[in-house]
Write a protein that binds this DNA or RNA. Structure first.
Length: 222
DNA sequence: GGCCAGGCACAGC
DNA sequence: GCTGTGCATGGC
């Protein structure tokens, strides 16, 4: 028997197809390090601007954890400037890179503990879970503002639920599978960007039949 | 020109 | 514990 979360994610997959996240340009070493950097740079920032910042790092030949740790702070800030919040993001990148080096580049993916990531300044729950899922290939479902918005509108979660409560709900509802988690999170973000903004275009929404919020908006426009 | 973007830390109640 | 605010750029 399919639960509601499986049903919704299945619908998104059918409607949009596979997303293939996380996009990487293979310019960083190791390759998964780019995901770690991207996870920090994308904090409250559009992916478009993150790409410019990644380009900046490659241009300056800052492509490994030790490159970041050793990099001159001003040079680092300048490289990532287009992603905004560059003062704090430069510091966060240095802290995260130091953590990766401390835990050992070769063992980071397998062994880094979620708690250890969370204890690093600048790494919150969403950033930690993005790193764990997309860089480390470990089964942690990423909960972001989009997930909250979509699923609270449908009525599956409370809008102000605890992050961990929502994550547990998703992880308990879905088959424990890294590729599945990656696809579904990507689909949720992609869907939200297209049709589930603050001014929702609900008539285009592939979840309309099962979304009470959408039905309400259609019959009762804002 | 205002609002938003794949958050987080910290101060002040 | 909860709420507000700073962080900053670029696109629409």
């Amino acid at each position: 028997m399919e639960n509601e979360i499986q049903q919704i994610c299945g619908r998104l997959l059918k409607h949009y197809g596979k997303q293939g996240w996380w996009p990487v340009r293979r310019s960083f070493e190791p390759e998964w390090f780019e995901v770690c950097i991207g996870a920090v740079l994308t904090q409250n920032t559009s992916w478009q601007n993150v790409e410019k910042a990644l380009d900046g790092l490659v241009r300056e030949n800052i492509i490994t954890p030790s490159d970041i740790v050793k990099a001159d702070s001003e040079k680092l800030k300048k490289a990532i400037k287009p992603s905004g919040f560059y003062n704090q993001k430069a510091e966060r990148l240095k802290i995260l890179s130091g953590l990766i080096l401390d835990s050992g580049i070769d063992s980071f993916q397998q062994k880094i503990a979620r708690e250890r990531l969370l204890s690093a300044k600048g790494i919150g729950k969403e950033t930690a879970d993005s790193i764990l899922l997309y860089a480390c290939d470990r089964p942690f479902f990423v909960i972001d503002a989009y997930t909250r918005r979509i699923f609270s509108r449908i009525g599956i979660v409370e809008e102000k639920s605890e992050y961990e409560d929502i994550r547990t709900l998703f992880e308990n509802s879905l088959e424990k599978n890294v590729d599945l988690y990656k696809e579904y999170h990507a689909l949720i973000v992609g869907h939200a960007k297209q049709v589930c903004r603050k001014e929702p275009l609900c008539e285009k929404c592939c979840l309309l039949e099962i979304c009470n919020y959408g039905k309400k908006q259609i019959s009762n426009p804002p």
